[in-house]
Amino acid sequence: MREIVWTLVAFALQAAVSPLLGRLESQFFAPDIALLTALYVGSRSSLLRGVACGFAVGLFKDGLALAAPIGVYTEITVLAVLAGRVLEKRVDLRSAVPLMATAAGVTLAATALFLLLEAVFHRAFDAYLDVVQMALPLALVTMLVAPLYFALLDRLSRPIEGHARPTLLGRGR
């Protein structure tokens, strides 16, 4: 149930963020919601549910960004779910600063993976320099949004879980 809610939230935000920032003429500073969702799901959910959720969110992003071959973002988000599972055991992803650092690192790694996958599978792709130039701004924006997004998903999970667990905004009731 939680995973469905997270997936739907990710769908809605991905669909809304781009036009919203487009209206503000700052669409290049859109945070990577799919990646943050995958990281969150990986750190909060079981392996299979997390992978399924990451798969759906990545596929949806592939649908929104048809410029890349379908599967690129799906692959990245599934791997991000796995990374989230691994990192959750080593980094305190419930604290803001470690979370931000992790989000920035994962975003940069995801960009590198994107370039690699594009280079391998996308024969018509030639915008490597643009992607490299946007890597750092994307990582910074995603890093800044990460604590807020995690707090939002925590808040949405609380009524579903029905029991208290520590969150970024404090311990739930």
């Binding site: 949806f60 649908g63 048809l66 071959p69 379908i70 599967g71 799906t74 692959e75 599934v78 024969r123």
Partner: peptide, 29 residues
Amino acid sequence: ALLLPVASMYFHGKTRTETSVVERNLLAV
């Protein structure tokens, strides 16, 4: 979950003129 996207990338990364079934369904959603 890991190999299906790879297969999809392999298929959709080729230069094609027609829209695939997956692309069509994704667009519809």
